[in-house]
Simulated assay, not measured.
Amino acid sequence: MFARDRLSPGLLAVLSFLAAVGPFATDMYLASFTSIAADLGAAPSSVQLTLTAFLIGMGLGQLLLGPLSDQCGRRPVLVIALAVFAASSIAMVFAPNIAVFVALRAVQGISGSAGVVVSRAIAVDLTQGADAIRAISLIAMFVGLGPLLAPPVGGAILTLGDWRAVLATLAAIATAMFALALILVPESLPREHRTSSGVRTALRGFGKLLANRRFLLLSCVFGLGFGSMMAYISASPFVGQAVLGMPPLLYSLAFAAGAFAMILANLTNARLAGTVPATRMLLIGSGLSLAAGATLTTAALTDALSPPLFIVCAFALTGGTGLIMSNASALALSLAETSRGAGSALLGASQFAVGGLASPLVGAWGEHTALPMSLFVLTATTLGGIGALLYRRGA
């Protein structure tokens, strides 16, 4: 079953759903950490290791499955990997101890990475130019919404049941993803366009892309953009409620503002594709995120941070991140014409590498100051802005 150079709205919706698997599975069970530790008799650090195992699996899985999809085709890699993801998600509901839990999370991360890396490659296989930017914008919107929506969804389920109910919901989502991939996702990479098999071929593909300075810059900009948003997401419960004293409803509105900004940014980007150059939209996104980081840091240093200012900064940061991720990924994959799976893998690896650093770093100074979060956001957005400027100048 081959797609005939056409990305239908229905297929794009399916790919967007599949691409959200990583961020959603990362954050959906965060509110359950305390319950998991108590029920399994595990130390909090051991429960934290389940998140680390998943993130490492997501990073390594993309580096493995991206090139494999260049060699074997998109569909078989996606379907088999999502079958393993669904099976491991179901098994995780019945995990008897923390060691099994950690092992299953690693398997889940490796297999679930296919949803991110292969979906992005399929979208670019079937589009070009402005259409590619529109497709990547919509996929990036779902990827960005995952970390924003997963924690409150997981928290809501936890109020109705226990942590296993949260994992059962994730298992149901994983099973639906596998079914959609099996039934609706076609092959988008004809045999004549596939690379030769073997580890050396994959390594050469990675080496060629990393030797391309423009691709490398865009990968760094992409990862730094996602990392700045993850710093906000991981620290916002403490900053919003412990530092600023925001009641639950107001804090929920702050999170909703971020989700709305992500949707608005990507829909705007999709609408302007072909009219406004992707490079310019990338710079606009970098500017918005940098302004948010600078404002947060200044306010934290001067004790001027307030709930309204925090919400405005969250809106600017997540909106800017939406523009950064969609345009950086579209521009980067346009440079990886013969190895889009490998290119998508490197983008994903940069995303989870920087995003994985965000949570421990912003929490290193305790839970009663906004400064660690604001400094991480400022550093990431500054470096990302420099990378975007260097790319524009043709470095």
Rank of each mutant, 00 (worst) to 15 (best):
I324R: 13
L244I: 11
G341M: 05
S306V: 07
A242N: 15
A291N: 04
S252V: 05
A235E: 06
T298C: 05
P248C: 02
G223F: 01
P307L: 03
S234A: 15
S344W: 01
A328W: 11
A294I: 11
G293M: 08
A304G: 15
L267E: 10
P277L: 10
L290Q: 07
I284S: 07
G258I: 09
N266A: 03
A278W: 00
V239W: 14
M262I: 14
L323Y: 10
L272E: 07
S334E: 13
S326F: 13
A278E: 14
N327I: 03
N327G: 00
G223N: 09
A332W: 11
V312W: 00
N327L: 06
A256K: 09
A342M: 11
C313V: 08
L244Q: 01
M246E: 03
G285V: 06
S289I: 08
G287H: 04
L290D: 02
G319S: 10
G319K: 08
P307V: 12
T297K: 03
I324K: 01
T338G: 01
M262H: 04
Y251S: 06
S350A: 15
L296T: 15
V239N: 11
L347T: 08
A259S: 14
P308C: 06
L296P: 10
A300R: 10
V243G: 12
A242H: 14
G293I: 12
L267G: 01
M262S: 08
S326V: 07
Y232N: 13
I263E: 10
A278T: 12
M230K: 01
T295Y: 00
S344A: 14
A254Y: 00
I233A: 07
M229V: 13
G341C: 02
S350D: 02
G322T: 00
P308W: 10
G348A: 04
A328I: 04
S334Y: 00
S344F: 13
F238I: 02
R280Y: 04
M230F: 15
I311V: 15
A300I: 05
S252Y: 00
G322D: 08
L296G: 14
A316G: 05
V312K: 08
R271M: 12
A261E: 11
A345Q: 02
A265S: 14
A261M: 09
A345Y: 09
I284E: 03
G319T: 07
N266V: 03
F255Q: 01
A231D: 11
P308F: 09
F238V: 05
M229N: 03
P247G: 03
S236V: 12
L347G: 03
A332S: 08
Q241V: 13
L264V: 12
N266I: 07
A314D: 00
L331H: 04
